[in-house]
Structures are given as C-alpha cells and as structure tokens.
Design a binder for these strands. Structure first.
Length: 257
DNA sequence: ATGGCAATGTTTCATTGA
C-alpha cells in the first residue's frame, strides 16, 4: 500500500502536475494540502477519471485539504469535530481506507514568534494532540501526514543557525513534534533515511532548490501497526524541478500488504 | 545585511506563505 502526502500550493495552478504525478506514481492514497479553493472548484472529474475517490475540505484563497484514494473513503471527518466550535481554517481531514485511518493536516505556519498566528499555531497543535489521544489509540493503524510546518530536528534543516528560533524550528515546536511521536507514532521517512540533508520544501527564492537549502517539514507519521509494515519511504524531489513546481515535494511511504 | 519568489483576490498592490 502506497501512501503519499503533498502540499501542492494551489490545486488549480498545479492540476496538470497533480494528474501527471498520480499517473506516474499511482499511490493508493494521496493526502493533499493547500488546495486554495472551495470544494466545488476542486478538479473532481479529472481525478475521478484516473480512478480516484476523493474527500475534499476546501477553502477559498488559503488552506484546504483533500484525501484521494483508489478505494472508497470511509468515515470522512472534516476539521477537528470535537464539539469545541470548528476551526475557521480548513486544515484537517480524516478518512479510512483499507483499514488505515488517514489524517491529513495542513498545520499552521505561525508567521512570526510573537504573532497572533503563532498563538493560533500552538493552540492548533494542542487541539490536534487532544483529538488524537481522545479519538484514536496507538495500537490502531493510523497515519498522520501532511505539511507540519515544523522541522523535527537538526537533520531536517539545511541552515540550522538561520532557522533556529523561527516558528518552524524552535524548542516549543520540536517539543510539539516529539509529543506526537511519544503518543505512539513513528516518523516513517526517518526510519529508512536516518541521515540528514533530505528535505521536502525549498524556498522559491534565492536558488534554494539547486543549492538544496531546504527544510523537511512534510511528514507521514505512523502508529506501530503501520510502522511494522514499512517497506520504503522517499521524497520525490524530481517533482520540485521544471516549470511551475510547488515549493513542496511529495513524500511517499510503501507499506507491506 | 538585505531581498530574493509565487499564488490569490481585495488585482496593477497587499497579504500570506515558509
């Protein structure tokens, strides 16, 4: 079973790349972030023609997430759905396929350390943690994936000194990421690639991609039943090349069975 | 040390992203 995550940075701008990528890689499930469109504007027909079912939680201009699956998506849940009032930003979507609970997240960026957006990011992370622990158990097959907007450790940052203390890479964010692992999940890509220097995002500016000046901020975390099935993981950095790429590359895991 | 790029709508700039 092949599961992937990709922040496409506008699904309408990236439609042709998305379709080509699906055809070439044929994932069983793909979690997509930053649709930047409402549900009705998602390219439903084109994706269906490739044989994918889709669950969409869209939003105009910003955010928006989707899950594409080669089999029907069951028990779709949009947002936190925790009874505390819905997040006005469409960042979280969950569905089950082939017995695996897929949780697709576009975690907040946070802007600047002293900003309201960073306060929102911290609250969002806390709410995610409580929803995870209240609704799921670490012995169930679950994948939490997406654009985390957190670099987990020094291996995930090309220029560590430049990023230390930023909203993407600081003690608080590293602790939040670690708490997800401590609850009972494994960073699947890291299992098969223990060395640093492999990134999932490169700034459009300053020749960051050819210089490999990047960050690894896109992850697939799996509970133990998922991690036990891990066969391989990769970041498709070729997708970052060429005309009009997303600034994020797709991340892929392959599970036995 | 600074800004660099890209997408969107409020469009000929401002906002946001990371």
């Amino acid at each position: 079973m092949k599961i992937a995550t990709w922040n496409v940075n506008s699904v309408r701008t990236r439609q042709e790349r998305l379709l080509r990528w699906l055809e070439q890689h044929r994932p069983d499930a793909l979690c997509v972030q930053e649709l930047k469109c409402q549900d009705a504007e998602f390219p439903h027909e084109a994706v269906a023609r490739l044989g994918y079912h889709v669950a969409v939680y869209g939003q105009k201009t910003y955010n928006g997430v989707a899950i594409l699956g080669r089999e029907p998506l069951e028990d779709v849940v949009r947002g936190f759905s925790d009874g505390a009032g819905e997040d006005p930003q469409a960042r979280l979507l969950a569905a089950t396929m082939r017995g695996v609970r897929l949780v697709c997240g576009y975690f907040p960026n946070g802007s600047e350390p002293d900003s309201d957006k960073y306060v929102y990011k911290q609250a969002w992370l806390a709410r995610l943690m409580s929803v995870l622990s209240a609704r799921y158990a670490p012995n169930e097959p679950l994948v939490l994936c997406g654009d985390f907007n957190i670099a987990a450790d020094a291996r995930d940052v090309a220029k560590e000194a430049a990023w230390e203390g930023s909203v993407l890479y600081n003690d608080t964010m590293r602790a939040a990421f670690a708490s997800l692992l401590r609850w009972g999940m494994t960073d699947l890509f890291r299992v098969t690639h223990p060395d640093g220097g492999l990134y999932s995002w490169w700034d459009y500016r300053n020749l960051s991609f050819p210089r490999n000046d990047g960050l690894r901020i896109d992850y697939l975390l799996g509970t133990a039943p998922v991690a036990a099935r891990l066969r391989e993981a990769l970041i498709d950095r070729d997708e970052r090349k060429g005309d009009k790429p997303s600034d994020h590359a797709p991340v892929v895991v392959v599970l036995d069975g």
